[in-house]
Amino acid sequence: MHLTGEPDEIPLLGGDVTDGVVRVGDTVRRPVTSRSPFIHTVLKHLEHVGFDGAPRFLGLDAKSREILDFVDGEVAGRPWPGWVADRERGISVARLLRRLDDAMQPFGVPEAAAPGARPVGSPAPVGPPDTFVSHCDVTPENTVFRDGVAHAFIDFDLARPTSRAVTVANLLLWWAGWQHPADRDPVFADVDVAERGRELVDAYGLDRAAREWVPRVSLSIAERSWFSMKDRAERLGGGWQRMWDDGVGDAIHRREEWLRDQQGSLLDTLLM
């Protein structure tokens, strides 16, 4: 489907790696990538099963950009507002993520979702097997709130096969402050990040077996992120290169250090 005769384009800012995103009326237009066809099938599935917490894919425009409906609401920009560390807001994100992951169960893990080859030197992932596809990038910038409650996730570009433990590890990275203290956003300065992690895991409804994996999976993700970020910076440039130049690789190494040191205490808190 191609649409013409559009209203003016309004640039949308705030993403780290996707340039050229604009709002046109009640729609968003984004450049397509090699992964776009797979992401479109994910969004079509979510619409089919009645999940209302994601944008709908509406086709392509005359410039061959993807068309998504614009999800109105409150989204964090940088620097993060203090409400990113609000307990109730975080709990609402965990509950929305659980609804998303439940909605994706019938989708399974299609062949098109298979991850590419690991970057040279990257260790193999640790954790339970992948059983469904999830968002895997639930940052404050990718979460839309209405009346203080998480309403929708946007930007599904990193959606991929995962497990309950991995999708929750991504949640805790962004909404529980599971970073090295030197890199933790100031909004989490007064938050007990282990306790916040337990609260979000409770809200998601993660079972004990999966909880036992979360600290180790979080460490595994950090161990592999350095290689994947370096690879994307070298291959794709743009925002990936900007983040690398800004020191994201060093921050990832510090996150590894913190997660390795805190494995026992984080696990004890999650299992309380």
Rank of each mutant, 00 (worst) to 15 (best):
A124W: 08
H151G: 01
A169F: 10
E195F: 06
P128R: 11
R99Y: 01
V193S: 11
A210Q: 15
Q179L: 15
P181Q: 07
W174V: 00
R160P: 00
D190Q: 13
E195S: 07
H135E: 04
R118D: 14
P129C: 07
L96Q: 04
R196K: 07
V109Q: 06
A94K: 08
V187M: 12
L100P: 02
P181G: 02
C136P: 00
W175A: 05
R98W: 01
P129E: 14
R198I: 14
A94I: 05
A210N: 07
R95Y: 05
V120D: 13
A210T: 00
F156W: 15
V187F: 13
L172Q: 01
Y204M: 01
F188N: 09
R216E: 13
G177Y: 05
I154T: 02
A94S: 12
A169C: 12
H135F: 03
D190F: 02
Q105I: 13
P123A: 12
R208M: 02
G108Y: 05
V217R: 13
D207P: 00
R118I: 02
G197V: 10
A94C: 10
D190V: 12
A165V: 02
S163W: 06
V191C: 08
G121H: 13
V166D: 11
G148A: 11
D147I: 00
D101L: 04
F188V: 07
H180G: 08
D192W: 08
D155N: 12
L97H: 03
R160K: 09
A114M: 15
G205L: 01
A203Q: 05
S163I: 06
A189P: 00
T167S: 15
P123L: 15
G116C: 09
P181M: 02
R95C: 04
N170Q: 09
P123F: 11
T162E: 07
I154V: 15
V133M: 10
D190M: 07
A176G: 05
G108P: 03
P106A: 12
L171T: 04
G121F: 12
V166N: 09
R216L: 13
D183A: 12
I154C: 04
V217S: 12
P115D: 09
H151Y: 14
L219D: 14
F145M: 09
R146Y: 00
A203H: 07
R216W: 03
S220M: 06
P129G: 05
H151V: 01
V149P: 00
A176Y: 10
E111Q: 13
V217D: 14
L100Y: 06
E111D: 14
V201W: 08
A210S: 14
F132T: 11
V133W: 10
E141K: 09
W178E: 08
L96P: 05
V166Q: 13
T143Y: 02
R198F: 11
L158P: 00
D157L: 02
D101I: 03
A182H: 07
A159M: 06
A189K: 11
D192T: 09
R224V: 09
A176P: 09
P215I: 13
I221R: 15
A113F: 11
A194F: 14
L173M: 13
V214I: 04
D157P: 00
D183F: 06
P129F: 05
T139P: 00
F145G: 11
A159K: 05
D185K: 12
V126A: 10
I221L: 15
R99P: 01
D183W: 03
